[in-house]
């Protein structure tokens, strides 16, 4: 079997896993077998899978370590939430959410591009530290901003709502650290899964294209890539921008799954970014399918183990170690390949 066929099959397996997960969850939902607690975890699980895919594009495919990716998610969340709040009464839900996605993705991509210009000149540890700083800056700036809209236009302040000096018809959009309240909750599990599938489609197709190969060439040896006529800076910017854009899409899901959006450390700080990085590393660097699976398991697990308070972190740690072995131990890799080959052969 040619590698091309194998690649197509591999990709279909990845989409299949996501669709199977969706169907199982939907059946459980429809038959009332899902606790309301678990129900509430479905959309977050999916957007964490999406941002893990985005980060793997940056870390695994481009080979640049970023620990500020939740900053892009934060930007996507706020940019889209501002739009949705402004148009809450004027646009129908579907169209509003669709445009919100475009805005969240575009603004996150723009920031990815702008931040990429200085950041991608750096290498290794420096890049990691600067992305971390940018992530924190984004979060802290949003926390400090007050924004309002009235008949005269848009007002900003860094002090308080009074300082916006709005007309009586004014509406507060971002209330400093209180964030944005009253955004319509229009995202749901189905939409989240569709966005995950689209993100996978973009990343997996990119990897099997001319641009994707150039990006991986930059990762493997940038000096040889340049000597082969590859525009190293350009391809780094491309991968970083697409990665930020996908993280932005995860942000749109985030802000449209809650009614009150705040730029807290819990969701947008470096801790959160590192948690996503854990998903990527344990799922396998450069292994897009692994990121989805790791994000789903590692996000759901601690939540589902809440009942077993004492043992919760113990079990979580053991799962981390098992996943690490499964992904990186040579024997496990060999075994996995055997299983996949058997599976693929049977279907070929």
């Amino acid at each position: 079997m040619t590698s091309k066929k194998k690649r197509i099959k591999d990709n279909l397996i990845t989409y299949g896993i996501v669709i199977a997960l969706y169907i199982v969850m939907e059946i459980l939902l429809k038959t009332g077998n899902l606790s309301s607690h678990l129900k509430g975890l479905l959309v977050p699980m999916t957007y964490y899978a999406i941002i893990a895919v985005a980060l793997n594009l940056c870390v695994g495919i481009l080979g640049e370590l970023s620990i500020g990716h939740c900053g892009f998610m934060c930007i996507g969340a706020f940019a889209s939430a501002i739009f949705s709040k402004l148009t809450a009464d004027t646009l129908p839900d579907g169209i509003r959410l669709f445009i919100a996605f475009i805005i969240g993705i575009a603004v996150a991509a723009l920031f990815g591009f702008l931040i990429g210009i200085p950041v991608l000149r750096l290498k290794g540890d420096y890049l990691a530290i600067v992305t971390l700083a940018f992530g924190e800056i984004i979060k802290n700036v949003i926390n400090a901003v007050y924004m309002g809209v009235d008949s005269k236009g848009v007002h900003f302040s860094l002090n308080n709502v009074m300082d916006l000096g709005m007309e009586p018809d004014g509406q507060v959009i971002i209330n400093g650290a209180m964030g944005i309240t009253g955004t319509p909750r229009t995202a749901n599990f189905t939409i989240a899964i569709v966005v995950l599938l689209l993100s996978l489609f973009v990343v997996l197709n990119l990897m099997n294209s001319r641009d994707g190969r150039a990006i991986m060439a930059v990762r493997d040896n940038s000096i040889a890539a340049e000597a082969s006529g590859i525009n190293v800076t350009g391809y780094k910017m491309m991968a970083f921008t697409i990665s930020a854009a996908i993280a932005g899409a995860a942000g749109v899901l985030f802000s449209h799954n809650i009614t009150s959006l705040t730029a807290t450390s819990q969701y947008f700080g470096y801790n959160a970014s590192i948690m996503i990085l854990v998903y990527v590393v344990l799922g396998g660097i450069g292994n897009i399918r692994g990121s989805v699976i790791a994000a789903a398991i590692l996000y759901l697990l601690p939540e589902m183990l809440r009942g077993l308070n004492t043992y919760r972190m113990l079990i979580y740690s053991i799962v981390l170690i098992v996943m690490m072995l499964f992904n990186w131990a040579p024997a496990a890799i060999e075994w996995r390949e055997k299983v996949v080959n058997r599976f693929v052969k049977r279907n070929a």
């Binding site: 590698s3 991986m216 060439a217 493997d220 040896n221 000096i223 040889a224 000597a227 450069g286």
Partner: peptide
């Protein structure tokens, strides 16, 4: 200096 994580044809 090869692209060591990529296939020969790639």
């Amino acid at each position: 200096r090869l692209f060591h994580q990529m296939s020969v044809i790639d």
